[in-house]
């Protein structure tokens, strides 16, 4: 225990930098993941015949073991944080895409028909009815993607993109269990804290009238 605290102190620079890198990687990947999969989800919810193939493709990506995916990308992209980001974005796509699609398609069709029948345009129906009602689903997808991304970002160290994986890897190489822990604990904490925060956001995103 004292070893661990000493390690935290003596390596605080390394840990801090790795921590910031980790957050940077996770969030940039997540942000880009949202920017891609949210509109895509809306699109496939409208043109449903494309839903199956597109979700299928992202599901295939999802099944590639993460270390292998990093491995595939290195020959194509070289090493560095861009390679890591691309791998992380690919993993973030499926949960957000699938939940956006499910959320939008599960909105009661009679409600949508009421909106259209009263003269709302398609965009108005999407913005004022479908999207608010699907928001809890979408938030749940983002939450899953966040936890996933934070975990997988640990592997970014293998493509030289830094992150808390660096600390863990160094610890492993030097048989320094305290250092391994100093990298692993923050990753776990990050994942748990984001999960809790986003759970709260998810609850907040549920329209008031739906909680009754």
């Amino acid at each position: 225990m004292t070893d661990f605290l000493e390690t935290l102190q003596s390596r605080s620079d390394l840990i801090q930098q790795a921590f910031l890198e980790h957050i940077y990687l996770s969030f940039v990947a997540l942000a880009i993941g949202i920017v891609i999969s949210l509109p895509l989800g809306i699109l496939i919810a409208r043109y449903r015949k494309f839903a199956e193939p597109i979700i299928g493709i992202t599901a295939i990506f999802q099944t590639i073991p993460s270390l292998a995916l990093f491995g595939f990308l290195v020959p194509l992209m070289g090493i560095g944080s861009n390679t890591a980001l691309i791998a992380l974005i690919i993993y973030a796509l499926l949960p957000i895409l699938r939940n956006t699609y499910t959320g939008l398609t599960s909105v009661d069709s009679s409600i949508i028909e009421a909106g259209r029948g009263m003269g709302m345009t398609r965009t108005q129906v999407l913005k004022q009815i479908e999207f608010p009602l699907a928001l809890p689903f979408i938030m749940a997808g983002i939450r899953t993607a966040t936890v996933l991304t934070v975990g997988i970002a640990t592997l970014a160290t293998f493509v030289g993109a830094g992150g808390l994986g660096d600390v863990i890897y160094r610890g492993l190489q030097s048989y320094n269990n305290s250092l391994v822990l100093a990298g692993a604990l923050p990753v776990a904490l990050l994942a748990i804290v984001f999960d809790l925060v986003l759970k709260w956001v998810e609850k907040k995103a549920t329209p008031k009238g739906m909680k009754i």
Partner: peptide, 29 residues
């Protein structure tokens, strides 16, 4: 769209928007 706004519409399964208050629902058109 303009035509539908000039015609009232009540559907079978009520079709009120569950995330909007009664006032907002009625005030839609």
């Amino acid at each position: 769209v303009e035509l539908r706004r000039s015609i009232g519409y009540v559907i079978q399964r009520i079709g009120l928007f569950p995330h909007m208050t009664i006032a907002k629902n009625v005030a839609l058109v």
